[in-house]
Design a protein around this nucleic acid. Structure first.
Lengths: 189, 189, 189, 189
DNA sequence: AATGAATGAGCCTTCATTCAT
DNA sequence: AATGAATGAAGGCTCATTCAT
């Protein structure tokens, strides 16, 4: 199996799932995008669902690695939190595949669903770790870190729904504004 | 057209669209849920898209009416904000339909799409009004009310994705916790 | 059964069958045209096919009566022929229902099909009678009256397919031109 | 795409559209006729309408090519006219497809409708050319070539409706008889 | 590695017709 | 005489998947 074609396949599938959603994207379209016939896809993937899984896997792995880097850095908890928020929004708005993550998870089944759920939990746990560190360091006031994490992620993940490239604020501005809101909601006073 | 059957139809459609999404719900399933044959649905609706529109219309109308009541009450802006957050979460977790509202809008076309978009904008504007009042009253510090509104709605609309009836927190507890986070993020210090 | 409603029904059905064809006209549309609900039609007719039959019956009966009047008049055969041609074209272009006759006959079945076929044969026979009289009178040269009749009817029945109300020729002009062509093709020299 | 199956498909579609009309022929029947399942048809065609278009296109192209050959031959106008009439009738009775051509055009839309209309106009124009040449050569007396062309085509296209293989006249006999009628209607005296 | 051909399952929709009221 | 409600049958079309080549 050509490594290069597989790469292409994942890139185009990511983009198409992102743009139209999993159900509304047909294998026909994906095949056409990479210049092969529909049945040839089955040399690279076992099923459409597996393709979704692969796309999600890659995307979340990237998110996790990048968040882990922040967590393991030696900044202060508040700085890490700000960094995490900025990065999440930037990834979401600049990199395709993220939306698929939030929206099409229900189309996975069985082990694959579990695997992605585990990966998503890892991300939540990393974020939560920052919150706990902040509390321990006396910088943050977070009575329920788990729920607070979900609060933050909800706010962050919605950004792609209203962001317009030609809008009033740039991506860094949005990222900064959100980081500020999160900080204010959490810092000890 | 039997009012009662229509009511049933809308309720079941709301629930199914909520649970599985518009595309993944077949008219067959909806028909079965209310105990009629698939073609009989066309006595009540003109198309599947119209059904989605009706479901969305009703839900958003309810949300708008209830938020308007808060806006027009004579509480302080901060009290209104807290009330609005609590109510939004309660509606979302106690009655189905909310998700459909925010996820399946792309499946509407033409005038129907516009109508729902307008209705959704009304809700955002109502919430934004509270923020502006808060700023004017010197209670809140909100540099960008529009983006802040979207921040809040993102956080709120995500709740249904992780809420479990048998979870650690009750609905009022979640609502209270969220109201607190929002308040802290926005109040002037 | 109200005689008046039945009349309305036939008129609207005639017009709609004419305009869109039998298959492309739904009972829904017919019912709407006369201001009743679809199932109410069944108080007036036994089936859609019967409705087609009634429409055709009326139309062909009218054609037959009018052609018979010409045949039984005491003009010369050539004059009758010219009259017949003019009248056929005029009826076709001015009166709805005629097209249905030529186009939708295949949708009839059983006895009704036979009945209409018989009526259409009567028309052909009447026209053929004129030809035979012309031959006997030494005015026309028609080796095969049956086939010649079909030649003429083919030419005549096609007129509705290309006639445009705002076209270059008026109905009487077309009728006159056609009568001329037929006369020239048949008269003994 | 197997050339052979495509050929079969077009042949059976032509025959069925001819026998029952476009609307009354289902893709199911066509698929069955060539021994495949209904959805498999979509390997060969994009829609039912496209199939109608292909059938019509082929047929009219054949008619046009053959009439053009006559027009461009170096016979006398009267001889060309006779040849054209004979050929039209022969094509019509020996190979299916002609009716579809003239009856089901309304079911085409957009560009396809225009294309077929243009092709049909080409045929009429070719026939008209013969008439004009005849007038210029002083052989024919045709005051209005356009309407006369439609007169002739009407007569000719009706033949398939009454022709029976076991009838009184053979195809060449009918063709000859029709050619005679047309000639007599048009020649200068 | 690739694909032409085919398909089973399913989808939304149309419509003539029935029937209890 | 009228109709609200319902439906069986059918239709065109989509699509993930299989398989022989």
């Amino acid at each position: 199996m050509s490594q290069e074609k597989m790469e292409q396949l994942l890139e185009h599938a990511t983009r198409l799932f992102q743009e139209r959603g999993f159900r509304a994207t047909s294998l026909e379209e994906i095949a056409e995008a990479i210049g092969i016939q529909k049945p040839s896809l089955y040399h690279y993937i076992a099923s459409k669902e597996e393709l979704l899984f692969l796309v999600m896997s890659r995307t979340i792995a990237d998110y996790n690695a990048k968040l882990r880097a922040i967590v393991e850095s030696d900044r202060s908890p508040v700085a890490k939190l700000e960094q995490a928020v900025r990065q999440h929004i930037t990834l979401q708005l600049e990199q395709p595949g993220t939306v698929t993550l939030f929206r099409d998870t229900p189309y996975l089944t069985g082990d694959r669903k579990e695997a992605i759920r585990r990966d998503l939990k890892v991300y939540r746990d990393l974020l939560q770790t920052i919150l706990r560190e902040g509390v321990e360091a006396g910088e943050l006031d977070v009575p329920d870190p788990a729920v607070t994490t979900l609060f933050i992620l909800g706010a962050l993940n919605f950004v792609h729904r209203w962001y317009r490239r030609d809008g009033r604020k740039t991506i860094p501005e949005i990222a900064g504004y959100y980081a500020d809101l999160v900080r204010r909601a959490l810092v000890r006073r």
